[in-house]
């Protein structure tokens, strides 16, 4: 029943949409503006709109890819740090303590001071994820672009404002990378935690060091498990890069708006952008599917959903 109703409902929505567009929509469609390659007032081209869209697409891909590199590397490190559950003790060199004391993260034994670096790293990773996940990206972009240069020493601030190459693009890449890293970190952590403890114990039992346990047992399996959610985050970077227009990056969405302001033919440009975004997504999904198939461990039951 419900399924039938849904299908009928969907068809009705589509039909209404078509008639609606044909009916009261007083819009002068000018699809030809999408092919403008040079300024030609007679043809309605105030600018080379075609190249603008290509340029916008290029910036979208550039910003998203660069941000993904940051997100993936930083996110992996932070995710791994969040799974640390044993202290990593580091001896402070050349300093001896005359008294014996012990706290959670620092202690002395035989006068040697040891610091639990793991505790600090774990804490740092937790704070990082909490902060970057809980502020809207839109606000973060603004804070990095306008507020951050005012908080650092004056000279550094001026450098950020005046001499940083492509200031808005660099800021967008940096900000989007840091934001997405917090999401990647959560996936990595979930992936590592989803592996049964037995594997870890088995690895330790055959004499692997903690680093080797991660390198040869935990990470190879967990990264394979989390390919589907990571794909989703990777697509998220492309979609979120559209927010960079708020600090002036001329990526795809910004370019379509610019075309609208110039030509007042916004719907054509929006349609083009929508199609391009769907195309990019399809390519990324396809690529990730190939990666997933390539790295599959023979004989291992796929843990992901169908």
């Amino acid at each position: 029943m419900m399924r039938g109703a849904l299908r009928v409902g969907l068809s009705v929505v589509v039909l209404l949409g078509l008639t609606g567009c044909a009916g009261d929509f007083r819009y002068n469609w000018q699809w030809s503006i999408l092919t403008c390659t040079s300024e030609n007032i007679d043809a309605g081209c105030i600018g080379p709109y075609f190249y603008w869209i290509l340029q916008g697409l290029w910036w979208t891909i550039a910003v998203a890819s660069a941000a993904w590199v940051i997100a993936f590397s930083l996110g992996s490190v932070i995710g791994i740090l969040r799974t640390l559950d044993k202290p990593i003790l580091v001896v402070v060199p050349f300093v001896k303590s005359p008294i014996y004391f012990r706290t959670r993260w620092i202690g002395t034994s035989k006068g040697i001071i040891t610091v639990d670096v793991g505790w600090f790293l774990h804490g740092f990773a937790n704070i990082y994820v909490t902060v970057f996940r809980n502020v809207p990206l839109l606000v973060q972009l603004f804070l990095w672009y306008f507020v951050f240069p005012e908080l650092v020493p004056h000279d550094a601030g001026m450098w950020l404002k005046r001499d940083l190459p492509f200031p808005e693009v660099s800021t967008a890449i940096f900000c989007l990378g840091l934001y997405t890293a917090s999401r990647v970190a959560e996936q990595v952590r979930a992936g590592i935690n989803s592996i049964s403890r037995g594997q870890q114990y088995a690895a330790m039992a055959i004499g692997l060091t903690p680093v080797q346990v991660y390198r040869y047992v935990l990470l190879p399996v967990s990264f394979r498990i989390i390919i589907p959610p990571l794909t989703s985050d990777f697509l998220g970077v492309f979609k979120n890069s559209s927010l960079a227009l708020t600090i002036g990056v001329l990526e795809l969405t910004a370019m379509t708006r610019q075309i609208e302001e110039y030509s007042y033919a916004g719907f054509e440009a929006f349609t083009a952008a929508t199609v391009l975004y769907i195309g990019v997504t399809a390519i990324v999904m396809g690529a990730m599917r190939i990666v997933e198939a390539r790295v599959r461990i023979p004989g291992m039951i796929s843990l992901q959903a169908k």
Binding site: P149, E150, E168, G248
Partner: peptide, 18 residues
Amino acid sequence: IVNVKDHPQAWLALTSGR
């Protein structure tokens, strides 16, 4: 050229020396 979203952001860019 520095692109800005709107007038207030432009004014912020000007007054902060960007």
